[in-house]
Design a protein around this nucleic acid. Structure first.
Lengths: 198, 198
DNA sequence: GGATTGTTTCAATTTTTCCTGAAAATTGGC
DNA sequence: GCCAATTTTCAGGAAAAATTGAAACAATCC
């Protein structure tokens, strides 16, 4: 179990993480850079990363910046050294929260906005019978909107700091589960309008 | 608000859903086919879909099969008609559960298996001091494994049928939240070993 | 303030993924 | 069992995404 073994183990982790990333719409390299920073636990500079992953400077720079934007990697400076170093968030739950926060913001929110927009421009004039086809079209859009609304509520409370967020999210989920089928869980004062709850 | 308006509204939904899909590692077309089936609510045949989305027969066939594999679209036959028709799951939560189930199975499970494999081949000989570097490497892997273990537990209970699943998932989440910081929530008998819980 | 070290940007290229269309296989009706 | 309608497969081509590398830019030191 020497340094070489650890290095190989790290490389395997990097590969596995990179593969997972690409299944989730994240560029393989970006996921690999993150994996490397996480698994080494050390702050690394651009050159370290380029060498270790055999990627170009441009690619490393882009990936690092994206990771910093996502909030799961941070820059670090050292006195007497002009290089920038990068360090990955080491708390897995904090990392997960950052990812959820970011993906909701980038993907779910715009989709929800689009859904509202679509519904509002098709809902038909007030007082006029929409006809069965439009009615069920609107119903489907509404159900989806409701779903995303709930999802956003759960995610918002989850994303708030520390374990508190997890418990808040659990509460809302429990409430939603209750509302969907069967009696409410006891001891829950969470608002069904999940956006405001917690 | 005529048929043409509904059609346009559907098209906009299809486009929005397709875009979201591609951000999540699902081919745009596959997401669009699903969107079309969901938003029309009607069973459609391959030709309907080809024409509406302007895609090739091969593409339509592949996308439909994938959707069926995912469990969010089902085949439908009609007497005296050799065509196959396809109908999308209309319950948004059921759809979400199917997606979670499938993605866990395809991506999280293999990753977790890989993590175990990596850890077990690097953990060092029993009784031999691993040294600080290997120790913290192993700790990081373990934390990740624990995280995925928990995630799997939450997802497994969630994925079980109906609102029950949601509540079960909420319970586990609440427990995890409690364990991570602060006191346990009351009224929770969920096993911390989430895999077996529920 | 100029030299040096380090970072970012982006057009060109490579790689990957997706899609097409026609051929092969399958299915249902008779 | 045969035929025609329908579906599936897959090699090749098209489109999209990721990556490189070099030039522009920025920061730091002396």
């Amino acid at each position: 179990m020497g340094k070489a073994d650890i290095r190989e183990s790290q490389d395997r982790f990097v590969a596995a993480w990179g593969q997972m990333g690409s299944a989730w719409g994240i560029s393989r390299t970006m996921a690999e850079v993150h994996a490397l920073l996480y698994i080494t636990g050390q702050p690394l500079c651009t050159d370290d990363i380029m060498e270790r992953l055999q990627i170009s400077r441009g690619n490393a720079s882009m990936s690092l910046r994206a990771l910093v934007d996502w909030g799961i990697v941070e820059r670090e400076h050292r006195r007497g050294d002009r290089k920038e170093y990068f360090r990955a968030e080491q708390d897995v739950w904090a990392m997960f929260r950052a990812i959820v926060r970011e993906r909701m913001k980038r993907e779910a929110d715009p989709l929800r906005a689009a859904l509202y927009e679509i519904r509002d421009s098709t809902i038909g004039r007030a007082g006029v019978d929409p006809g069965p086809e439009l009615a069920s079209h609107n119903r489907r859009l509404d159900e989806l909107i409701r779903f995303f609304h709930t999802l956003e509520g759960v995610s918002n409370s989850f994303v708030s700091p520390a374990g508190r967020g997890l418990q808040a999210a659990a509460k809302i989920l429990g409430y939603v589960g209750g509302a969907l089928s069967g009696p409410k869980p006891e001891n829950t004062e969470a608002d069904p309008d999940t956006k405001e709850a917690i």
